[in-house]
């Protein structure tokens, strides 16, 4: 963490400190709508960062991360709805089960040498398989969905994740900050360097004594566990869960757009990505409404076009380009 701070020059430090303070005091001035958008952004920072660890650092392209969001959300919600077990306790089995799924995918993929596109497809297959499975599990409501009841009397029970918009904002803020710090920490750790080596060249990494299988397994386990916590947040923030919504491939894609647009393998890429894409979506909704185009797909078309433009123009992501432009580039001793 300290090294993250030290690696930035004065301008970078000022910018990060300012952004932190603005976000910290945002609820004072922000409207409820703005706060909900910011909450969503911070949620995407969090899950994007979790995915970034696996793809940006360890180089393993998962296109099925919605699986872990869904498992985390569903398990914690089901424990709460059916047994009254609160999310602070429920997060433990949620993470454990999501990590077990991650371990299964990782083991299959890495033991049997399933790489590149094949590995990505394996992750999609698991997510889709689980989605269809949850459609048929009556205990969690099947395709009809699972709902966390809204109870007026519980509203202040923050320990059960029952709270106001401001509460969820700060929760998301805390999670996002922790995710950024964790990424910074891992990026400068022995494990982080092992991941980079594997991302760049697995054979060379192995020749330098790195146990590639173990390092990759750690990446999947950390990433899936983190993402599952995001799922718990999602469940108690939105209170309604549908397999088609949580596990769908479009969810996995949505989750990884931020880090890719912002810049994979960087600490601030997923942050910038989320802060670019989520407001962009909101602005597109507003603009298309203003322009009188009330077709449901119009916003998405613009979104798709902008996505293509970004990946065409700045393929390594907005953050590396931006930090160069604004003079935040790392100075190296």
């Amino acid at each position: 963490m300290i090294s993250l701070w030290r690696d930035m020059n004065g301008r970078g430090q000022v910018a990060v400190a300012l952004a932190f303070l603005v976000l910290l005091f945002a609820p004072v001035a922000a409207t409820r709508y703005l706060l909900s958008v910011l909450t969503l952004i911070l949620y995407f920072v969090y899950v994007g960062q979790a995915w970034n660890l696996m793809m940006g650092y360890a180089g393993q392209l998962s296109l099925g991360h919605a699986l872990y969001v869904g498992l985390g959300g569903y398990i914690s919600a089901a424990l709460w709805v059916h047994f009254g077990i609160g999310p602070w306790l429920g997060v433990v089995p949620s993470v454990a089960i999501a990590a077990a799924f991650g371990a299964a995918i990782g083991w299959l993929g890495f033991r049997f040498g399933i790489e590149g596109v094949y590995f990505s497809l394996l992750t999609i297959a698991f997510a889709e398989f689980t989605r269809i499975g949850f459609d048929h599990i009556g205990f969690v409501g099947g395709a009809g969905g699972l709902f966390i009841p809204y109870e007026e009397s519980r509203l202040g029970e923050w320990w059960n994740l029952r709270g106001s918009q401001v509460f969820f904002y700060y929760l998301a803020f805390g999670m996002a900050v922790l995710a950024v710090l964790l990424t910074a920490l891992l990026a400068r750790s022995r494990l982080g360097y092992q991941w980079l080596a594997i991302r760049e060249d697995e054979t060379a990494a192995r020749a330098l004594g790195i146990d590639v299988f173990r390092a990759k397994m750690k990446a999947v386990l950390i990433s899936s566990s983190m993402t599952a916590v995001g799922g718990v947040f999602y469940a108690f923030y939105y209170n309604s869960l549908f397999p088609a919504q949580l596990f769908d491939m479009s969810r996995s894609i949505e989750l990884i757009l931020g880090p890719i647009v912002g810049g994979t393998g960087t600490v601030f890429g997923p942050v910038i990505g989320a802060f670019v894409l989520t407001p962009l979506g909101e602005i597109l909704i507003a603009v298309t409404e203003k322009a009188g185009i009330n077709a449901p797909g119009a916003k998405a078309i613009f979104f798709g076009l902008i996505l293509m433009a970004i990946i065409y123009l700045v393929p390594t992501g907005v953050w590396p380009w931006l930090s160069q432009r604004l003079g935040f580039a790392r100075r190296r001793s």
């Binding site: 392209l61 890719i260 449901p296 798709g304």
Partner: peptide
């Protein structure tokens, strides 16, 4: 010849445009 995730994003963009055009 570019990394798979870049190709992926480009074509996801294409896919989003196509599906939503049809939807509209």
């Amino acid at each position: 010849g570019r990394p798979e995730h870049e190709q992926f994003i480009l074509l996801v963009g294409v896919a989003i445009v196509l599906v939503n055009a049809v939807l509209i």
